[in-house]
Write a protein that binds this DNA or RNA. Structure first.
Lengths: 138, 138
DNA sequence: CGGTATCCCGAGGGATACTG
DNA sequence: CAGTATCCCTCGGGATACCG
């Protein structure tokens, strides 16, 4: 119960102080995790540094375009660092910066939760859709 | 370090087992948290049940359209329950279901992280943009 | 190898107006 | 009060082709 109270309190405080949606840290972070590839890339880098095409192979259905773009954003926000080795052909490696690494804890909590509750969610969804279906015309 | 290893291991396992992007629990959950309003609504309901227009007021810049839609999704996935009181005019209240309530823990971890690291992220961003700007034509 | 540049489509979501 | 229904426009992101 105190967990929900803590969150509720935070929310109330945000309400009080202007609540610049643009400056809201939560929005800021969630927008990030919300996009299609960020989280997967962070996870892919959890084990250690990887090269561009390595990541590309680890995440089969990502395009180079989105891989580059997402890595750039992660770099911009200080989550990953980019190292260029001027070999021939060039080789670039990405690794989690301390900031990115520090995200792994909270992220792991969320992943564990997701895995634990995924079945429940799927059930709820089926139940809801079944109820909807029966009350609607085909 | 073991935190990152745990995640890395999970990732490797996903790789091994087909990795149906569609059935990936993480994708499933993150897509949810990623959209613009879900998280805010969950937080708004943390303190207790709220009526439709109450939530609308708590989150100033949401439209009725998105509020309804997001609440429906949350209901569908079993995060919130909807109670209709047939008064005149009707009154509808939403509250977190146990499933939704159980999300508050992991979510709080993420929020705490976001608040703690937000400054760092902003700094990294400024630094990156400054470096970018200096190397680019106006 | 590690990217950019372009084109393009569909979904997310805002604004507004109407309803039981 | 608690929604629906429409319109419309932005923009995330896929496909493809090209570059140092």
């Amino acid at each position: 119960m105190s967990e929900s109270d803590r969150i509720a309190d935070k929310f109330t405080q945000w309400q009080g102080a202007g609540f610049d949606a643009t400056r809201c840290p939560v929005r800021d972070v969630l927008d990030h995790l919300g996009d299609k590839w960020t989280t997967l890339i962070v996870i892919a880098l959890a084990a250690g540094p990887r090269r561009f095409n390595e990541i590309d192979r680890l995440i089969p259905d990502i395009s180079k375009r989105m891989l580059t773009q997402t890595l750039r954003n992660l770099e911009r926000d200080g989550f990953v660092t980019r190292h260029v080795f001027p070999t021939k052909p060039p080789s670039v490696s990405y690794r989690l910066a301390p900031l990115g690494h520090s995200l792994l804890g909270p992220l792991a909590a969320l992943i564990d939760w997701a895995e634990a509750r995924h079945g429940e969610i799927a059930q709820a969804r089926t139940r809801y859709d079944r109820a909807e279906g029966s009350s609607e015309a085909a």
